[in-house]
Design a protein around this nucleic acid. Structure first.
Length: 114
DNA sequence: CGGGTGACTTTAC
DNA sequence: CGTAAAGCCACCC
């Protein structure tokens, strides 16, 4: 199971690496596109992170709602089934919101550089 | 091979 | 708080 994830071809594309990091986000935590990109070695490729999530098919395995932009805003909410689903999922995990943004000070999770 | 696009970020005005 | 521009890189046509 998890071994398969770690054993994935070392030649993974950027997208695959993004997905693997998103999968590692702990319950009730969130991270930003920038941090994921940084963990991959290129902070400037933050756009690719969002692009990768859009390309992912197995959403059930990827908690996309835990990936937000630098402001803590749910930039990708419009890509969910409903514009409110993303926030509902996060609140359901105990994530605190400040207006339209997530309280990053409390729930920001930084991925480990693999 | 080139151009358009995008779930981003930063700086600038 | 608003728009604009540049930078970055994968994917699609």
């Amino acid at each position: 199971m998890k071994d398969e994830i770690l054993l994935k071809k070392s030649n993974d594309d950027f997208s695959d690496r993004v997905l693997q990091i998103v999968m590692q986000i702990p319950f009730g935590k969130v991270t930003t596109y920038g941090h994921i990109a940084y963990a991959l070695g290129s902070k400037k490729s933050s756009r690719m992170v969002g692009y990768a999530l859009n390309s992912v098919h197995n959403r059930d395995e990827i908690p996309c709602h835990r990936v937000i932009n630098r402001n803590g805003e749910l930039s990708g909410k419009l890509h969910f089934a409903t514009p409110t689903l993303m926030r509902e999922l996060l609140e359901g995990e105990g994530v605190e919101f400040i207006g339209e943004m997530v309280n990053l000070s409390k729930h920001l999770w930084i991925p480990e550089t693999v």
